Computed example of a mutant assay.
Amino acid sequence: MIEDDEFDAFMQEMKGVKPIKAKKKVDLARPKVQEPSLIHRRQMAVKVEKGSNNHLTEEIIDLVHPLDVLEYRSDGVSLGVFRNLKRGQYAIDARLDLHHKKMKQAREEVFQFIKDCQKYDIRSAIILHGKGELSEPKAFLKSCTNTWLKQIPEVIAFHSAQKHHGGVGALYVLIKKSDHKKQENRIHYNKGRVDN
């Protein structure tokens, strides 16, 4: 066969030829690329200033997707109230914008914002955290906000906003009545019972 003849001819020509030993010129080891979880751990490793009463986590949090709808309802919040919150039917009395904030600053601002809302008897607010489609890891501040709000006892419910208020890049937040407001309500409603 022709193929056998060609192979034999090739082998005849190659007799006595030895492979050249070359030094490795290219390092084939992969450079270490930081994984998103490592980046995330580093960003979350923030030291709390001494004397701060901010108890919001600095630990690793569960990351959400940029387009996820976020929702939370604590015990005692009726489905009707939660439905109204979800639909954006409560007046927005306060607003916090976290766009372009570093995690440490956002953590402090969320904590103080909720404390101030309760102090001034603000029951319904909005927090604009953004979707985080371009952040690394993705939806980082959105994920942080989702975690932090669940850790604040004054927050009794939240839900991703309607499209005209920022959609999945914002949250409607429902805040517990202050002790002062609860006392006012008790006096008001008890007075009505006594008068009747």
Rank of each mutant, 00 (worst) to 15 (best):
2 I>E: 11
2 I>H: 10
2 I>P: 14
4 D>K: 11
8 D>W: 06
9 A>V: 05
20 I>P: 11
20 I>S: 06
24 K>I: 08
26 V>E: 15
29 A>S: 15
30 R>M: 14
31 P>Q: 13
31 P>K: 15
33 V>R: 14
36 P>T: 14
38 L>M: 08
39 I>K: 08
40 H>C: 04
47 K>C: 07
49 E>S: 09
54 N>Y: 02
55 H>N: 00
57 T>E: 12
58 E>Q: 08
59 E>P: 00
62 D>I: 02
63 L>W: 02
65 H>A: 12
67 L>R: 02
71 E>P: 02
77 V>C: 05
77 V>Y: 07
77 V>Q: 07
80 G>R: 08
86 K>S: 12
88 G>F: 10
89 Q>W: 05
91 A>Y: 10
93 D>W: 06
95 R>G: 04
98 L>T: 00
100 H>D: 15
102 K>Q: 15
104 K>H: 10
106 A>D: 10
113 F>R: 00
114 I>V: 15
115 K>G: 05
115 K>S: 04
116 D>N: 15
117 C>A: 14
120 Y>I: 05
123 R>P: 04
126 I>T: 08
128 L>F: 15
130 G>D: 01
142 K>D: 03
149 L>K: 01
152 I>L: 13
160 S>F: 07
160 S>I: 07
163 K>Q: 13
167 G>H: 05
170 A>N: 06
174 L>H: 02
179 D>G: 14
182 K>G: 02
185 N>I: 06
188 H>M: 08
191 K>E: 11
192 G>E: 15
195 D>S: 15
